[in-house]
Design a protein around this nucleic acid. Structure first.
Lengths: 118, 118
DNA sequence: CGGCTGTTTGGTTAATATCCCAATTGTCGA
DNA sequence: TCGACAATTGGGATATTAACCAAACAGCCG
């Protein structure tokens, strides 16, 4: 793997890593569905310390996924990219596939002989 | 955030986290473009210890992204989902947006007055 | 059976992430 | 200007991750 290629994958990984946390996923999802939100609102929804939420937002922003804007004493965050929805759709399809697989495994354990043509 | 909702985002995060590593991204990309590969081939391409690569593959498999099949003494891994391409496309668009932003910032520093209409 | 290759697992260490608390900065209204 | 609220930053404890090496495992061939 050449250095340039490595750098490319590292850049991608930085962005994906920013999304790889339940709280940050929740935030992104919320912003995608309901538009801009201030830190205090998100803190309320998430139910963690405001400093924690603020740091999560900083991670998402520094990855280029969010942008912020001050309104008075509050800071509002909003999505900077629109394709996040597709992103989630793919993740959901993986979850679905995993669930299906799980089902098949269970069925196979319960009645191995008929499972193949059920 | 309700416990069920939290569980949902945790499940998503597990999958995304599995992708949040340069080597694993490379592997997924390779499998997406060239089909099934055995551990030894991937180890060769990645240029790391085989045990390291094997562990990366285990991570991807346990997330449900890959499936493996033995052929003789070798283990071949292949993608289990097709939408990964969209996934990457979105990440690329974020990278592109970040690069554009960077450009604008630079232009703004060099000549703040004309930058607005350049 | 014994050795060979391919693969996984265990162990150790270093780096990173995450959380909350405490302290600081910034903005608004009295 | 002071006090209150919003947000960020720094600090420290804990947990997770990732790398390599070494050792164990699993098929296959002689």
């Amino acid at each position: 793997m050449t250095p340039e290629l490595l750098a490319r994958y590292e850049a991608r990984a930085r962005i994906i890593k920013a999304l790889a946390h339940p709280t940050r996923l929740f935030i992104v999802d919320e912003l995608a569905h309901s538009g801009p939100r201030c830190v205090c609102e998100l803190t309320e929804m998430v139910g963690a310390d405001m400093s924690t939420v603020s740091k999560h937002l900083a991670v998402l922003k520094s990855a280029g996924l969010l942008q912020d804007s001050k309104r008075g004493s509050q800071v509002y965050y909003q999505l900077r990219v629109g394709c996040i929805t597709n992103f989630f759709a793919c993740v959901e399809s993986v979850l679905q596939a995993n669930a299906d697989e799980q089902q098949r495994m269970l069925a196979h354990i319960e009645s191995p002989r008929v499972a193949a043509r059920s």
